[in-house]
Write a protein that binds this DNA or RNA. Structure first.
Length: 315
DNA sequence: TTACCCCACGAGCCCTCTCC
DNA sequence: GGAGAGGGCTCGTGGGGTAA
């Protein structure tokens, strides 16, 4: 069977390929698709012939995709997502939906904003499934390339025209340290103390400089970063067990001060404020289910944002 | 034009074999 | 031993031919 014939006659084969890429197992793919293992095996044989590639090879750790199969993954996911939206009924019933949504967020976004909403979301849509993945570079471009359906993001300068969004609220960086830290005894941090201290930098992309470093650089200054790591939540644990200073978004700091005994201080320098946005791609814009989730999340996120902002600035 | 029949083909299942 | 592949079978569907 040629590729064109496969696409014309058998979209199910592509659904099977997607399930195989996801589960890395013929048996598990069959279970997920409600088919027998031989049926999936036969479809895989057809796919192998159509693509003229083994697609998966057996190893002692299960099926491993070939480079061709790996390359097919993202465009196939995008295609099936769009097909799903095309065939989806125009109405959406949260009470009965078993739909799965993909959402991108940092551990920070998950902890500060998303996790508190989970119970409310599940009360309305008990069978809904949310799959949260972490960022891999520019989230706006991931949305554009068929990645997650929705993301909590701080948009960069060049957002593709195909990306929609709603602003949740603005935030600024603050500095946290352990409660017994020598600088915690002071009401306010001064710049000399700030520059003399050891710092921790959270950098998901592996950059050596964050917003604080760039602000210092504009003043011809630099701080001493002795620990760089990619996880926001782990950074609080490190802060609690060290004399490191940690500069993080205010909402995040406000969301963790109940869990970690940390002191929170304003930064002794001007760092640009930024805004959180809920963003999604044009192709999901008219999707009723997606619109429902967007609406629920947006209201939940803005409410949570107000709580955290007030905790940060009680006035 | 419509209804019916026949046949080919695809997809599913069970069972068994093969392979890692 | 577990998981994938293959053989043989059944069933459903769609297309083509034919009769009313």
């Amino acid at each position: 069977m040629q590729l064109a014939d496969l696409a014309r006659h058998d979209l199910n084969a592509l659904v099977t390929l997607h399930a195989l890429l996801d589960s890395r197992s013929v048996s598990r793919a069959a279970e997920r698709l409600n088919l027998s293992q031989p049926a999936v095996s036969r479809t895989l044989a057809k796919l192998r012939q159509a693509f003229d590639d083994p697609l998966f090879v057996r190893t002692h750790r299960g099926l491993r995709p070939t480079a061709r199969a790996e390359a097919l993954g993202p465009p196939l996911a995008k295609l099936l997502q769009e097909l799903g939206a095309l065939l989806a009924p125009p109405t959406f019933d949260p009470a009965s939906t078993t739909r799965r949504f993909n959402l991108a967020s940092t551990d920070y976004g998950m902890h500060a904003f998303l996790a508190p909403q989970w119970r409310t979301l599940k009360e309305e849509a008990p069978h809904l499934r949310l799959e949260v993945e972490s960022y891999r570079g520019s989230i706006e471009h991931q949305l554009d390339e068929g990645g997650p359906e929705l993301a909590i993001s701080v948009p960069g300068e060049r957002v593709p025209a195909s990306v929609h969004g709603r602003e949740i609220g603005a935030d600024r960086f603050v500095c946290v340290m352990r409660e017994e830290h020598p600088l915690a005894a002071k009401e306010a941090l001064d710049l000399d103390d700030f520059l003399a201290a050891d710092h921790q930098l959270v950098s998901m992309g592996g950059d050596d400089r964050g917003a604080v470093d760039l602000a210092l650089e504009r003043e011809g200054l630099a701080r001493r970063v002795s620990l760089r790591q990619p996880h926001f939540l782990a950074s609080f644990s490190t802060t609690q067990h060290s004399d490191l200073l940690l500069c993080v978004p205010g909402c995040l700091a406000a969301s963790v001060i109940d869990h970690w005994p940390l002191a929170l201080r304003a930064l002794p320098l001007e760092v640009s404020a930024f805004s959180y946005w809920l963003v999604w791609h044009e192709r999901h814009h008219a999707d009723a289910g997606h619109a429902w989730l967007r609406e629920r999340l947006f209201h939940g996120l803005t409410a949570r944002y107000r709580v955290l902002s007030e905790r940060l600035d009680p006035s």
